[in-house]
Amino acid sequence: MTLIARGARRTWLATTLRIGILSLGALVMVAPFLYMVSISFTESTYVLTTPPQFIPDPATLANYEQALMTQGLPLAFANSLYIAAISTAVSLLISSMMAYAFARFSFPGRELIFRILLVGLMIPAVMLLIPQFILAKHLALLDSHLGLIVFYVAGSLALNTLLLRGFFEAIPGELDQAMQVDGANAWTRYWRLAIPLARPGLATAAIFTFFASWDEFAWALTIINTPELRTLPIVIRLFAGAGNNAVQWGLVFAASVIAIIPVIVVFLAFQRHFVQGLTSGAVKG
Results as ranks from 00 to 15, higher is better:
F167P: 09
D215C: 03
A269V: 14
I236P: 10
I260R: 08
L163W: 07
T209H: 05
L163D: 01
T222E: 13
L251F: 11
V252H: 04
A259G: 13
V252Q: 00
W249Y: 15
G250Y: 14
V265H: 03
G250F: 11
T161K: 02
G173L: 08
L221D: 13
T231M: 12
L157C: 10
I236Y: 01
V235W: 01
V263S: 12
P196I: 10
F211R: 06
P233F: 13
W219Q: 04
E228P: 10
Q177A: 03
G173Q: 11
A186E: 15
A203W: 02
T188M: 06
Q276Y: 00
H273L: 08
D182G: 05
W191H: 12
F274E: 14
D215G: 07
A184E: 01
Q271Y: 05
D215R: 05
A203N: 02
I223D: 03
S256N: 07
S213T: 09
P262M: 11
T161E: 06
A255T: 11
V263R: 05
V252T: 07
T209L: 02
V257L: 11
N225I: 00
T204Y: 09
L238H: 02
A184T: 06
L159S: 09
E174Q: 11
A269Y: 12
F211I: 15
A254H: 02
V263L: 15
W249M: 11
V252G: 02
V266P: 11
I264C: 09
A206P: 00
L251Q: 14
I260V: 12
L197I: 10
F211T: 10
D215N: 15
I207Q: 09
Y152G: 04
L159K: 02
V257K: 07
L159C: 00
A205V: 06
T226E: 14
G173H: 13
F167W: 10
R192F: 12
G183F: 04
D182K: 12
E228R: 13
Q248W: 06
S156C: 07
D176Y: 14
F253H: 04
R189V: 12
S256F: 10
A203Y: 01
